[in-house]
């Protein structure tokens, strides 16, 4: 029985947002990316996404049942985690590996730390990194997308890494897709990361709905743009390549694992961008968005502490 007659401390502001509405908005924002993934990679993309979502929801339900915790599958957060994980996988991923990833995301990263709002790192990102380390070859076997002129199935970033001699590879600059192809998504890569257009639509929808603020994505993408320009790479290309858009709009803005204040969000975004560029340019991996977000997730408590806002009328601490 809920007692509605309790008077709580002010401010008495009512907001209609609940976890459910926010997560529903995120799912809606990801719809363009899902459509793009099916368009470019065929119906198996849908299968991978369905498996990840189903396993994520099942794991959430099962774990909460075992631990006698309140059931939270109704708030769509497991759906978002499963979908984000699926969008970060290559289309050819074996189904059992995708299911393993969803299990790691929900049980190990989210529920073992206390469920929604308690996880120290983004579940989808962490699960993707676990899978990248565990199934190295399956996670970097890319399929050539439909509508692409280039025959190569490698991601643009691994082609660039090959040209620069960072990794072994016999790629040439001719294999790189054009900027338009990059923007539309006709290139090798994970399911949901290729179409910048679809992700941009989703991101703008989220900002318009005030689900996320512009600070983190803009700081993240701008940092990558400026740093790659300074380092003599092609900035526009670097910004659109890899998982930067999905990372900046959907992963780095996770409420639990990123700072709440605008100042903190900007610091978080710049940190992500810095690490991404470092890994891309000097690291062994061609792509560094997921690692950078995970590392910044871990730094998040410190960023929160150092960017605390002064309460109105308060004294600087």
């Amino acid at each position: 029985m809920e007692n509605n007659k309790i008077v709580s401390v002010n401010p008495h502001i009512y907001a209609p947002d609940t976890t459910t509405t926010i997560m529903r908005d995120v799912v809606l924002a990801l719809v363009p990316a899902v459509i793009a993934s099916v368009l470019f990679f065929g119906p198996r993309a849908l299968l991978v996404e369905a498996v990840c979502i189903a396993v994520a929801v099942l794991c959430e339900w099962g774990f909460e049942k075992i631990c006698k915790r309140p059931n939270t599958i109704g708030d769509f957060s497991a759906v978002v985690t499963g979908l984000l994980l699926a969008l970060n996988l290559p289309v050819s991923i074996p189904i059992w590996q995708a299911a393993f990833g969803a299990f790691v995301a929900i049980v190990v990263v989210k529920q073992l730390f206390g469920g929604i709002g308690m996880n120290f790192a983004n579940p989808a990102i962490t699960a993707r990194i676990v899978m990248l380390v565990a199934f190295g070859s399956a996670m970097t076997t890319w399929t050539a997308p439909a509508f692409a002129d280039a025959t190569s199935s490698a991601t643009p970033l691994s082609i660039i890494a090959g040209i620069n001699g960072v990794t072994a590879g016999t790629h040439t600059a001719d294999e790189l897709p054009s900027l338009v192809q990059m923007f539309l998504g006709a290139r090798g890569g994970s399911l949901g990361e290729t179409s910048c257009l679809a992700l941009l639509l989703g991101g703008i929808y989220l900002i318009w709905r005030k689900v996320i603020s512009w600070h983190t994505p803009v700081a993240f993408i701008a940092t990558v743009f400026v740093l790659t320009a300074l380092l003599g790479q092609q900035p526009l290309y670097q910004v659109m390549a890899g998982g930067l858009f999905i990372g900046a709009f959907f992963m780095a803005t996770d409420y639990t694992t990123s700072p709440p204040t605008p100042k903190g969000k900007i610091v978080f975004g710049i940190g992500c961008g810095l690490l991404t560029v470092c890994i891309r340019v000097w690291g062994n991996y061609p792509e560094g968005v997921s690692f950078s977000i995970l590392l910044m997730n871990i730094l998040n408590p410190f960023i929160c502490n150092l960017t605390r806002t002064k309460p109105f009328g308060g004294v600087e601490a």
């Binding site: 676990v130 565990a134 199934f135 190295g136």
Partner: peptide, 10 residues
């Protein structure tokens, strides 16, 4: 179908 991360430090 081994999960090679299990034998590594992490």
């Amino acid at each position: 179908n081994n999960i090679s991360i299990m034998t590594m430090a992490p």
